[in-house]
Amino acid sequence: MSNIHVTTTINGDETEYVCRPDESLLDVLRDRLGMSGTKEGCGTGDCGACSVTLDGRLVCSCLVMGAEVDGHKVETIEGMADGEDLHPLQQKFLEHAALQCGICTPGFLVAAQSLLERNLDPTETEVRYWLAGNLCRCTGYDKIVRAVLDTAKDMRKVAKKSSAKKTAKKGARHAA
């Protein structure tokens, strides 16, 4: 099994690494690049703790191969705050006590940010379905959903001031 050389952009920084073909992007981030903010809860795409964005799309980094991100852009929890300024979602998660143990928190934040980039005015149901792939066992989700809705409300106020808002709504999906 020979290593593959990859050049990619992570949180805006051009990054090079080598990895084996069977390594996931999550393995690469954690074990090769020392970026342990992205967590592994299952390794099978069922828990969302390893959420990152790939070219702006929310994905589970455990289901992306390290080899295939060559030439693409990855964003992780480590890139969310701007220096010492927290992203509004990070601040609201703290204020609403939306984390207990905190292991799922990076994944939830990355997923919620991806929602608010597409829809700054989500309903509670839309938030819940968007975040259904992120498991939390501590909070019962209540305070997480409130934190996301409250962030959206604040960000709408800011957005109203600055410019028109984008809305590409993801409809709530329901089973039978």
């Binding site: 795409g45 969302g48 959420s51 790939l54 799309r57 929310l58 994905v59 589970c60 289901l63 992306v64 997923a111 991806s114 929602l115 968007w130 975040l131 259904a132 792939g133 992120n134 590409a168 993801k170 999906r173 089973a175």
Partner: peptide, 29 residues
């Protein structure tokens, strides 16, 4: 696929089926 308005309009049954596969994260891939 879900964001393609024309396909969704013509074949909502197909698009809703594809969109049911897994989470938002899974949908991204």
């Amino acid at each position: 696929l879900g964001e393609h308005a024309k396909v969704s309009k013509m074949w909502p049954g197909v698009v809703e089926a594809v969109e049911l596969i897994g989470s938002t994260q899974i949908q991204g891939r």
